[in-house]
Amino acid sequence: MSTYGFWFIVFSLILVTSALAVITFRNIIYAAFCLLLTFFSVAALYVFMRADFLAVTQVIVYVGGILILLLFGVMLTNKITSFFKIKTDVVNVGWGSLAAGGMLFLIAFIVRTISFGNLPWVKNAEKTNNVLKDTDSTVHSIGVQLMTTNLLPLEIMSILLTVALLGAAYIARREPVKGRKTLSK
């Protein structure tokens, strides 16, 4: 087996195992740290898919941003007596397994039915040499795309992020002192 395939299998296994750990650990802190491993392995899979820019973005945004935010959320919404004793309860296991299993079955059925390597547009891409190679860098192409074809989504996204920043700061702030007083009485 090539080292390429070997590392792919290793990272896939880490990804699936850590995702399984996220949904089985009842301790929220453990789940959050397993989520860290999941995000890192997704970034590794991006490298296997020749998406270098996205792999770095994944590490910066998910690991450096969203995960820290989630950990802050855990800490701020629990009465912390011992940091490693923050548990979540489990409900609706039957319905949850049914929905997840049904979804998995559906996707397995689709994968068995469609042969992705023989899709017309995939064949066409292989014929016209439109496939990403290991030596290709996507950074230049992504920059050009952002400023041409995807300019409008980029601008909308910048407005959305500003709105989200202001909105999150407004929603999360404490009530004015007046409201506090009536609440404590």
Partner: peptide
């Protein structure tokens, strides 16, 4: 697909 099912669960 596996990851999506886990998230849904």
């Amino acid at each position: 697909g596996i990851l999506f099912a886990f998230g849904l669960f």
